[in-house]
Amino acid sequence: MKYYLKKCWPTVTAASICMVVAYGLQVCTSLVQIQITQGLLDGDLRAFTIRIILLLLTWLAVVLCLIAETFFQGRAVRRMNNALRRDMAAGLLHKTHQEYHKQESGEYLSQFTNDVNQIEQMAWTPFFTIMGSAAQVVFGIVALASIHWLLLVISLVIALVMIFVPRLFSQRLGTVGTACAAS
């Protein structure tokens, strides 16, 4: 996977940058919405209007970044798939006549279509999903810390509780579920 990511690095990088910028701007929109609410509570119509315009411009930038990210991600996936197919074809060309005819032509065709699609679903798509999730977590942490450090600490503690508490009960629930299914 790393080989193909490096081979297609310009489009992968462009997609990643657009994704990170879009998620960063989404967090900014949340912070601007907090300021809008504060402006309403303070009764400051001028600040409210300026922040609404800023919010609209930020959302426009988010949409443009997401469009660019979709374009570059699609291009990157297509290029990685094509590079994979080229490498598979080169491997076929290096086979002897006897090695080539050990498999049916349908198997080779399956490798070029189904296997490449499976690699796309199990490698390329999760790669971009993980990158996006990591960017969202980092920007979320920064946003919480910018509001108040205690909010960040409380959120992290709650997240840890939500992760580890179900693990404490999963073994017991599995035992009870097995006993219930057996009776």
Rank of each mutant, 00 (worst) to 15 (best):
W9T: 01
L45I: 14
L168N: 09
K102C: 05
Y108Q: 02
Q121L: 14
C18Q: 00
T96V: 03
A68H: 02
V32T: 15
L56F: 15
V62W: 05
M131C: 13
A83F: 05
Q118W: 07
E104N: 14
L109K: 09
L55H: 07
V62H: 05
F48W: 11
Q98T: 10
V157W: 07
L152P: 11
L57A: 11
Q33P: 01
V137I: 15
L93W: 12
V138H: 01
R79S: 03
A15R: 09
D87I: 03
R85E: 04
V161C: 10
F112A: 12
R51C: 07
V153R: 02
A68N: 04
P10M: 03
E99R: 12
R86M: 11
M19K: 01
E99A: 15
G106T: 12
G43C: 07
F169H: 11
G140R: 06
Q26C: 02
T129W: 13
Q98P: 00
V63P: 02
A181L: 13
A47T: 10
A135L: 06
G74A: 10
I36T: 05
T37L: 15
T13E: 01
Y100C: 01
T13H: 04
P10N: 06
T11V: 08
I147V: 15
Y100K: 10
Q35H: 13
Q111N: 13
K2N: 08
A135H: 09
A145F: 06
I119P: 00
C28H: 09
F128N: 05
V63Q: 06
T129Y: 11
Q98S: 11
A61E: 00
L25W: 04
A61T: 03
L160W: 12
V62A: 02
K95S: 06
F169G: 14
A179W: 01
A76V: 10
L25A: 13
L5N: 00
L160P: 03
F112R: 00
G43R: 07
I158N: 03
A15N: 10
A68D: 00
M1S: 10
V142M: 13
F72H: 11
L56C: 15
L168Q: 14
T29P: 01
M19E: 12
W149V: 14
D42Y: 12
V27E: 12
L45D: 11
